[in-house]
Design a protein around this nucleic acid. Structure first.
Lengths: 204, 204
DNA sequence: TTCCTACTGTACTGCGAGTCCAGTCCGGCG
DNA sequence: CGCCGGACTGGACTCGCAGTACAGTAGGAA
């Protein structure tokens, strides 16, 4: 029983690393089983097909990402109780985190799957959707709390503003991948941060 | 000679539509030749392999995109000579354009190729890179012109701000694809627009 | 008439996904 | 102790798709 759990997550580890480095399609089951030191039969014992692997990877990835955001903004909250400053600190921490990742951030599996659509079944796509909706909800909540104390200088749609966190991160990662530069994503986050500073620069 | 040009661009048309709808990998040469009503041999006569097709598609796409930006901001300039207002009008036009595309924007081939990296050779990747660097240059130029007349309220890196246009569009398109919603990309652009309004809200 | 360009058509290799299944190894349970 | 079921191994196979090779052809230009 224990070997099952071990092997399964070993497959996921290997697969995730490979997929983040070169994309899902370019990662063959052959090399995954080689890396995980199992047989092809063993792979298909754990995952019905590549789709099942993708789903499992996404589930795990989203959990990790959520936990990361939880932790990040919890730490920010400890440093400053004001919702605006908490957000600003959290974004700074996020930017720093992205910079520290030498290979660049786990290039967000989200974007990667979004652009390979038909390769995946409805389950994978729905998971993807729910993850982004979750982040929208999380950040919208934070922005609404901020707006209670700081009147936005311009009217903004809170859902869209919530999405902008994800969007800026995703967009930054796309740039980073395509440009082969180092810190585009973290720079973009810092620019978004100055946006928030300007937007919420007046007290009620 | 004429048939060559015709066939070649007919292949590119069919391929581009298919790739934007379902991704490069999911598009088979088989279906391209079926759509273009040529033989497999005919396809390989025009394109050495799928990589050559990708390169040609990217080249064409980037040209169109550049022409589009040229046109957009030229129209904006006609409406208002002030660089800031020209930029704000241009972004509004861009947002409107994205909204009007029923299937969503030609989901930016850039992001799509960035996340399938290893599928493509160095030539394709370099093209991708140059396209984004070109946009960076274009928008940085515009922002510098703006900054001459409007002191930025917060210090910003002009390269990063230039990248933010591309980043916000790319990020918005990722969200739109993943969420299967309608106007995420245009909403994100409009938010970015309010950022610029706030950032450059003081005259020199 | 000849030559070239733009193909068609067929036949082949090779790779990776996915299927099937027979056999093995091992820990728990009666 | 035996045997049962879960976690595999290993090999053989099908299928779809990329890419190669090459022989043949239709039609316009010189």
């Amino acid at each position: 029983m224990d070997q099952k759990v071990d092997t399964r997550s070993r497959i996921l580890d290997i697969a995730e690393a490979a997929v983040l480095e070169k994309g899902f399609e370019a990662t063959s089951i052959e090399e995954i089983v080689a890396g995980a030191e199992i047989s092809r039969g063993g792979f298909f014992y754990h995952f019905k097909d590549k789709n099942a692997l993708a789903r499992a990877m996404l589930e795990r990835y989203i959990e990790v990402e959520d936990a990361l955001y939880d932790d990040l903004f919890a730490r920010a909250r400890e440093l400053n109780d004001d919702p605006l400053h908490c957000m600003l600190i959290g974004l700074k921490l996020l930017a720093e985190m992205l910079e520290e990742m030498p290979t660049g951030h786990p290039g967000c599996v989200i974007a990667s799957t979004a652009y390979q659509d038909r390769l995946f079944d409805e389950g994978v796509r729905e998971l993807n959707r729910q993850a982004i909706l979750g982040w929208r909800k999380r950040f919208r909540g934070m922005f609404e709390e901020i707006a209670e104390q700081y009147e936005p200088r311009e009217p903004v749609n809170m859902d869209a503003l919530g999405d902008m966190v994800s969007g800026v991160v995703e967009g930054g990662l796309v740039l980073q991948r395509a440009l082969r530069e180092q810190n585009n994503a973290s720079e973009q986050i810092m620019l978004f941060r100055t946006y928030l500073k300007l937007l919420f620069s007046s007290k009620h």
